[in-house]
C-alpha cells in the first residue's frame, strides 16, 4: 500500500515535469496559431488574451494572396523533392559500397569523406558562390565562365551541392555494415554483381535508414535559409523560407497574416513528421546509434 502510494507520488511528479515541458515546447505553436486567427483589432494592447475572441480564418487566404506564395512553395517543393530523391540514391549506394564491397582504398576514401561532416556549410559558401557564378556557358557566361551570373539564381545552385552528403553516407554505411556476410555470399554465388546485389538484396531492406535520411534531408532542405539567401536574387526563385522573411518585412505590422504564413510554411513538415515519426525513430535506432 505504502509502496503503491509512493509510486503514485513519483508518477505524479513525473507527469507534472513532462507536462510542464510539453507546455513550454508547445506555447510558441499556440501563440502562432492563435495569433494567426486574430482579426487585426485584437492584436495590440490586449493584455494576455491568447485566444482570438473572434477567429478569422480568412487571414490565411489573405496571407497567401499577399505574396507569390504559389511560386515559393513550388520552388521549395521542387528543390526539396529533387534533393531528397537523388541524395537517397547516391548516399545509399555509396554507403553500401563502403560497407559491403572490397576495393582498394575503400576505407581511406570513406574516412576522407567523413571530413565533410566537420565542414560547416556556411564556411564554404564563398567559394561555392564564386564557383556557381563562373559556370561556363550558363546565365550569360562565356566558355571561360566570365561575364554573367552562371548558375546563381537558378535551381542548379540550390540543388547541386546537396545531392550527396557525408552524413548520409555515414549513416547508410553504419546501417549496411550490420548485415551478416552470408547475405552477400549467397547472392554472389548466384552471380550477382555489386549493383544487382544492392538493388535486389539491400535496397529492399533499407526502409528504416532511408526513411530516417529522407526525413532529415527534407527538414533540412525545406528549412534552409542561408543558402537560398545567398544564391538567389529574384523574387521568382525564392523558397518559402526567404518568402517568409521578406513577407515579415512587408507585413511587419500585420502579425496575424505573418503568423498565418508561418503556420502554412511549417505545416507540410509537421504533417510529414506525424506520418513518419515511427520510421524516423526506427531509423535512428537501426543506424547504429543505440547504446
Amino acid at each position: 500500500m505504502v509502496a503503491r502510494l509512493a509510486r503514485d507520488r513519483t508518477d505524479l511528479l513525473v507527469y507534472a515535469i513532462l507536462i510542464f515541458f510539453a507546455v513550454l515546447m508547445l506555447v510558441p505553436f499556440a501563440v502562432a496559431v492563435f495569433t494567426s486567427l486574430k482579426p487585426k483589432e485584437e492584436l495590440l494592447f490586449s493584455g494576455i488574451n491568447l485566444l482570438p475572441s473572434n477567429p478569422r480564418p480568412y487571414n490565411y487566404v489573405e496571407a497567401m494572396q499577399a505574396a507569390d506564395w504559389g511560386r515559393y512553395f513550388l520552388n521549395s517543393t521542387f528543390v526539396t523533392v529533387t534533393c531528397v530523391v537523388i541524395s537517397l540514391l547516391f548516399n545509399s549506394v555509396a554507403g553500401f559500397s563502403f560497407a559491403r564491397l572490397h576495393f582498394r582504398g575503400r576505407d581511406f576514401l570513406f574516412f576522407f569523406m567523413l571530413i565533410g561532416i566537420m565542414i560547416p556549410p556556411q564556411a564554404i559558401i564563398i567559394p561555392q558562390f564564386l564557383m556557381f557564378r563562373a559556370v561556363p556557358l550558363a546565365g550569360g557566361n562565356d566558355i571561360a565562365g566570365q561575364g554573367g551570373i552562371g548558375w546563381l539564381n537558378t535551381y542548379w545552385a540550390l540543388i547541386m551541392p546537396w545531392l550527396a552528403g557525408s552524413f548520409g553516407i555515414f549513416l547508410c554505411r553504419q546501417y549496411y555494415i550490420n548485415f551478416p556476410t552470408e547475405l552477400d555470399e549467397a547472392a554472389r554465388l548466384d552471380g550477382c554483381g555489386p549493383l544487382r546485389l544492392f538493388l535486389d538484396i539491400y535496397l529492399p531492406l533499407s526502409g528504416p535508414v532511408l526513411a530516417a535520411l529522407a526525413i532529415l534531408k527534407t527538414v533540412f532542405m525545406w528549412n534552409d535559409f542561408f543558402y537560398p539567401l545567398i544564391m538567389t536574387t529574384t523574387d521568382n526563385m525564392r523558397t518559402v523560407q526567404l518568402g517568409l522573411q521578406v513577407f515579415a518585412g512587408e507585413y511587419m505590422t500585420d502579425w496575424n497574416l505573418l503568423m498565418a504564413a508561418q503556420v502554412l510554411v511549417t505545416l507540410p513538415l509537421i504533417v510529414m513528421f506525424f506520418f513518419l515519426q515511427r520510421y524516423f525513430v526506427e531509423g535512428i535506432v537501426t543506424t547504429g546509434l543505440k547504446g
Partner: peptide, 13 residues
C-alpha cells in the same frame, strides 16, 4: 565497380 558506385556521391563531395 565499387568505384563507379561511389562515384556520384564522391564527385559531388
Amino acid at each position: 565497380s565499387g568505384y563507379l558506385l561511389i562515384a556520384p556521391a564522391y564527385v559531388t563531395y
